[in-house]
């Protein structure tokens, strides 16, 4: 749990890992993304995630813009990535 200047309690992007692991075959928290709002480039771990709403919201640490949203019903999951300009994923290498 992290305190921010607004006195808020949110979790960092690692808290989103469980939900995102159901969608991606790679560890998304170490992927690097660019905020479509302010251009900040960071790992997904270095974000603010809000897990207490009707869905999960991951926001930019720099500007609070929404990077991604996940909503799950019992039957399916919806993922909105429009707040990410890109997501960079390293290939897994042997050795």
């Amino acid at each position: 749990m992290t305190d921010d200047p607004h006195g808020e309690t949110h979790l960092d992007g690692n808290a989103a890992a469980g939900t995102l692991a159901e969608l991606f075959t790679f560890d998304v928290t170490v992927a690097v993304g660019r905020c479509a709002g302010c251009g900040r480039v960071s790992t997904v771990a270095d974000t603010r995630s809000y897990l207490d709403g009707p869905g999960m919201v991951v926001r930019c640490t720099g500007c609070d813009s929404v990077l991604l949203r996940v909503v799950s019903s019992p039957e399916r999951t919806w993922l909105d990535l429009r707040g990410l300009a890109y997501l960079e994923v390293d290939h897994v290498t042997e050795g």
Partner: peptide, 10 residues
């Protein structure tokens, strides 16, 4: 209950 999709606005 308080549900939050982002920081509380003041």
């Amino acid at each position: 209950p308080v549900l939050a999709a982002g920081p509380t606005q003041r």
